[in-house]
Design a protein around this nucleic acid. Structure first.
Lengths: 203, 203
DNA sequence: CTTCTAATGGTCCTAGAGTTCCGTTAAGAA
DNA sequence: TTCTTAACGGAACTCTAGGACCATTAGAAG
């Protein structure tokens, strides 16, 4: 009954297939950063990647499908986490990292486009949530450490603290339109650290 | 030289023209809430509104153009502001209002779509920024009042406090994927109030 | 009321995104 | 190495979003 048909690229993932995927995902990232989500054309992506457009349509099918795969790829490489010894120091480092990413001429538009794509497609949304869940978990230990140091109350939800740092910066990027500058990053970190110390993030 | 050509609908804004605009904007809102930004088809909007598609293309031209007009319309009607007598009370009321909007089956998807549209088009982005600037200014007085009561430090930036309340909720809606529930609203309000008291939002 | 024309709304047309077909290339197995 | 077939890529096709054209309707002014 069941017409077993594995997804293209899974049976022979070596050599050529891997090169194609890498080239297409790179081209997709470039196009997203430059033109945005809605102006994306899979044929244009194929041209940039030096790949037949049939291949792109066959393996990824739709724009959201391609973006979801890009997010899966991006979720794999993690970023360095700093340990300054104080919650405020750690959160400030985190906020500044987010700030520099979102204000980067390539990364800023790219993340904006990724979030846009996720808002339009459930599959992409799931990939985005996974991406940020991983990022959040990578940062969580600095909050746990603060709990162990007695700097903030036991029962504080680490992920809530981490998200509280990023949220104002993404709000500026997506909604307010204000520049995501160093001052706003430091303010976000300070507000989150202060609220955490006062026990605002306890379950 | 200059071929003066006023925008369609500005010379004879009475009767029919106004009815068409109303019907189209309503249909656009419905379609955005149901299908999302990327699946929007101006011909479909015209059909829903009981209007010729030529009219829609002539007056609004593109999907972002239509969304921008919808945002301009939405910016005009304001919402009631509560005065509870304490900063935490006021911010909690605000957070719960945002929460109920974002978790509403129609409003939630609609706002998601509006923000998505703004991320794709500068004109729409400008309209969105205006919309939220107005909303923020409507809420700002409760922070000013808290300053006058001596509840929070002078020099506190009211708009930053207001945005700090909303930001975590929008983060959940757009990025984290977690439900925008009552608990998260109360937590956002508490965190913002606490941080404000500690002077985290002073310029 | 009559006149003028802005604005509407059918109908037809065009460009390009997405699909299908089929021959070619190369990954993986023996 | 050879063999099998997964995966690629060019070319031709389809289908529809968006635009052009023009006849019709109805505000606004006198």
């Amino acid at each position: 009954m069941s017409d077993e048909r594995p997804d293209p690229g899974t049976v022979r993932p070596g050599g050529r297939t891997a090169k194609v995927r890498e080239a297409v995902l790179r081209a997709a990232g470039d196009a997203l950063a430059e033109d945005g989500f809605d102006r994306l054309d899979l044929a244009e992506i194929a041209r940039r990647a030096g790949v037949g457009k049939t291949t792109v349509y066959r393996r990824w099918g739709t724009v959201p499908g391609l973006v979801a795969d890009l997010l899966t790829e991006m979720a794999e490489d993690s970023l360095p986490r700093s340990e300054t010894g104080s919650l405020l120091g750690d959160l400030t480092a985190q906020a500044r990292l987010v700030q520099s990413t979102l204000s980067d001429p390539r990364q800023g538009p790219l993340f904006k486009a990724l979030i846009t794509a996720a808002a339009c497609d459930p599959q992409t949304a799931e990939a985005l949530h996974r991406f940020y869940r991983i990022r959040t978990e990578e940062w969580a230990p600095c909050v746990t450490a603060a709990i162990e140091r007695g700097e903030i109350p036991a029962g504080t939800d680490p992920t809530e603290v981490i998200r509280a740092v990023s949220a104002p910066l993404y709000y500026r990027l997506l909604i307010g339109g204000d520049p995501v500058d160093r001052a706003s990053a430091d303010r976000a970190a300070k507000a989150a650290a202060t609220a955490a110390r006062a026990g605002a993030f306890t379950a």
